[in-house]
Design a protein around this nucleic acid. Structure first.
Lengths: 117, 117
DNA sequence: CCACCATACCTTGTAATTCGATGTATTGCA
DNA sequence: TGCAATACATCGAATTACAAGGTATGGTGG
């Protein structure tokens, strides 16, 4: 059980997904991610620092992210970016999410009649 | 803390949502729900009895569901159907889910460019 | 008649997440 | 000087979902 071998909660991992998605575009630091997620989702998703930092640490120790320190305006920041492994993880989570959202959407919209293929 | 007053996990409650959705069409019993969810989602969502029964009990004690016993072929079943309160809950959860899925979808699809309003 | 599988209900322990609160330290501004 | 924003971090509590197991009945095949 290095990490996520067992069947995880099929719902969770959304913060992880969003973080990977953002970092896949450009390197960012934790505090920035917290605000970016809030802004980009119009506050529909609002994860706190208590969520973001542990996820970042977990992803890094899994080799999905790499980090580098950088001091800007006397502010010490830790910038994260995705590795090849992180890219794969992002693709995986992305697909899983899309399938899940699709299935649920179909159930919510679709009537009780048998679906046409 | 009657039940869900605090800010819950923004992700959870999908089993609850699906169960309410199915029961809103016609009354069903637990065992039937387990199979219906599996079939209707092509096994993308596969909740077990250990998930369904506690949710049913919780919803009933919250007044969102009502139940009646019925014996069919010597099989004793407990059929559940949604109350007015359950209908409201379904509408709420439905909207919350739609917002959430929409926000995430936008993040997954949308590029880094500033979104046009 | 017995064994077995499907039906039908239920509970318990465990694992994984997420959340809120809190703590530290620095910078800039009033 | 004091306060807000920045930037990192961790802890405890709560919620949830899951797997596994437990009970009981009915039908079917040997």
């Amino acid at each position: 059980m290095t990490s996520r071998e067992t069947n995880p909660n099929f719902m969770n991992g959304v913060p992880e997904l969003l973080i990977l998605r953002l970092l896949n575009e450009k390197e960012m630091y934790g505090y920035e991610l917290v605000q970016a997620i809030r802004e980009r989702t119009d506050a529909v998703v609002a994860v706190g620092e208590g969520v973001v930092y542990p996820v970042l640490h977990g992803l890094e120790s899994d080799g999905a992210l790499k980090s580098r320190r950088k001091t800007v305006n006397g502010r010490s920041r830790i910038y994260y970016s995705v590795t090849a492994r992180g890219s794969r993880r992002l693709a995986d989570l992305s697909e899983t999410w899309t399938n899940l959202a699709g299935a649920i959407h179909r159930m919510l919209m679709g009537g009780q009649s048998a679906e046409a293929v």
